[in-house]
Design a binder for these strands. Sequence first.
DNA 1: ACACTTCCTTGACATATATCAAAGAGCCTC
DNA 2: GAGGCTCTTTGATATATGTCAAGGAAGTGT
Lengths: 128, 128
Amino acid sequence: MSRKCQYGDMPKALPLLEDTSPICCDPLTDLQVISADDAMGLAQRLKALGDPTRIRLVSMLLTQPSQEACTCELAPLVGLSEPTVSHHLKQLLDVGLVTKARRGLNVYYRLEPQSVKALARVLDIDCC
Amino acid sequence: MSRKCQYGDMPKALPLLEDTSPICCDPLTDLQVISADDAMGLAQRLKALGDPTRIRLVSMLLTQPSQEACTCELAPLVGLSEPTVSHHLKQLLDVGLVTKARRGLNVYYRLEPQSVKALARVLDIDCC
DNA sequence: ACACTTCCTTGACATATATCAAAGAGCCTC
DNA sequence: GAGGCTCTTTGATATATGTCAAGGAAGTGT
């Protein structure tokens, strides 16, 4: 498996989260307890991913050649009604994990890989 | 037991997830959609972390010098009743993010850093 | 055995969530 | 503008979740 996007080789000082999204957080560390506010924001994003349907939607977006798909394509893939899929996509949208763009009749949802990776960075705990 | 955990100085290539826990998952990738089963398992673990109280509990365990704490210590820290904290700790326990060990009257919960890092690894998506 | 501490479970309640059908909102094409 | 797509919102319902009080379970000490 290729690790193309790892920040392992980058200088630790580079905080490239703020550039791409307002949601960010330092990695959990043994140095100090997370603030209540940060815990709330982090939990919101994790909860958005804490649903099998939404995990599958994220994965499906990731595997699209164009990295995007519309509701009418996704609904049959996950086997749920369009309103339900729309509801789930809104959850992901609200925490910045996807973006949406209308083109004609369709609304195309696109994954924000940086936001997902930002979560990965927070969970890559700094203790050992 | 040393508080400096496991694989700090080990070669990065070593995939020691399968060794330490049954819950694991390859990083999300653009190559194929995650299976429904894997999505379920991954969502369960993310949902366990998708609550501000549980995030704070994890962070608090991480900051303990011994990497562990008992319910009676954690309850006042998060400002909730002991049964409620016990309930949250059980959620974390059920998905393998913490372990517990009784010593005398107290039950000490301990963070499983490699389980958290395993989640980080899954979210460090492989696409760009 | 008894009392005390810590922890968990149960029961109850309020809130949140997932889901769909139905209706509304946007955007075409004719 | 009429009709037909696509998408979202609303309303309804069932399930899940977070919380606490009360009581039970496990362990220690007298």
